[in-house]
């Protein structure tokens, strides 16, 4: 019983983290058809921005809870700014290129950011651990969990809800869905696709950075952070179906639970369980679980 509970809670916590990372990635792909490797850089930038801002905040001697606001603010704004720079500076020129070419362009951006981050923040690790312990811990079924992690599940659910609401219940979201389904027709009926691209990319980058910011309190923020996370996020969105928010959610939960089960039952297979899940899903559903229907070009 505790075993099942452990797998469930650990799986969900891990899935929440995965989903927050993957949500921005899949959104950007859905709208812009860019599988953005630089999403890993946004994650890293968010983590660095949050860690340095929180560290600075605690030198001010202000009330500790303010750290959460600072963390979110620093991560999201750094991500949005970086996202806008990338979109306006490079991607704008290359819109409409082959999808795989865009993967490589963003790979180039990822490489550049790897070193830029080092030049900006140096190589020393940054810590922002205060918020992680501040919320205390809870005992569930004899197991102790940190409340911060449990709240992460709520945050992930909120983000999923907000994205669903934004896409389905707002005007801008409906425009976006039109673009996701058929970009050319959307342009034909007068939707300003370029402007939507900018907004989407900024939101995607902000989400990536938010994921990094939320992860920062539990880790040492070090160089190389972004590269580690990006392939994981790829696995999630490909499993779920590229471009689909529901897919990212289900993919994250599936992978999160599978990994937690492996760690608790059969630690030997932890290293390939993520790719194992992805492979199994792709064998039976070659376009992922919630693939968008695509017309064959004639």
């Amino acid at each position: 019983m505790t075993l099942l509970l452990a797998i469930l809670i650990d799986g969900l916590i891990y899935a929440s983290w995965l989903f927050i990372v993957a949500a921005g990635l899949t959104l950007v792909y859905g709208v812009m058809r860019i599988l953005n490797m630089a999403h890993g850089s946004f994650y890293a930038i968010g983590a660095y921005a949050a860690a340095s801002a929180v560290g600075w905040y605690f030198t001010l001697g202000l009330p500790a809870w303010g750290a959460f606001a600072i963390l979110l603010l620093a991560a999201i704004s750094a991500g949005v700014v970086a996202g806008l720079v990338v979109e306006r500076g490079i991607l704008r020129i290359l819109h409409g290129r082959d999808e795989v070419i865009m993967v490589l362009v963003t790979y180039g951006i990822l490489l550049i950011f790897e070193d830029l981050i080092k030049l900006i923040w140096g190589i020393q690790a940054y810590y922002a651990y205060q918020p992680y312990g501040m919320l205390g811990r809870s005992k569930i079924g004899g197991l102790t969990f940190v409340n911060y992690d449990l709240i992460l599940i709520v945050v992930a659910a909120l983000i999923a809800g907000a994205l669903w609401f934004g896409l389905n219940r707002t005007r801008k979201g409906k425009l976006l869905r039109a673009v996701i389904h058929d970009r050319e027709s959307a342009e034909l009926v007068g939707i300003n696709v370029k402007r939507l691209f900018i907004t989407t990319f900024a939101i995607g980058a902000g989400l990536g950075a938010l994921a990094g910011g939320l992860a920062a309190p539990a880790i040492a923020v070090n160089p190389g952070l972004g590269i580690e996370v990006i392939v994981l996020a790829f696995a999630v969105v490909v499993t779920g179906g590229l471009g689909s928010i529901e897919g990212a959610l289900v993919g994250a939960i599936l992978i999160g639970l599978a990994r937690a089960a492996a760690v608790n039952l059969l630690p030997e297979i932890e290293l390939f369980v993520i790719y194992g899940v992805m492979t199994c899903v792709l064998i039976f559903r070659p376009h992922g679980l919630f693939a968008l229907p695509t017309a064959r070009r004639i």
Partner: peptide, 13 residues
């Protein structure tokens, strides 16, 4: 990996 939640649970258990 950076995220050790599940491993820590396994250790705790």
């Amino acid at each position: 990996a950076g995220q050790y939640g599940a491993e820590l649970t396994a250790l705790a258990r």
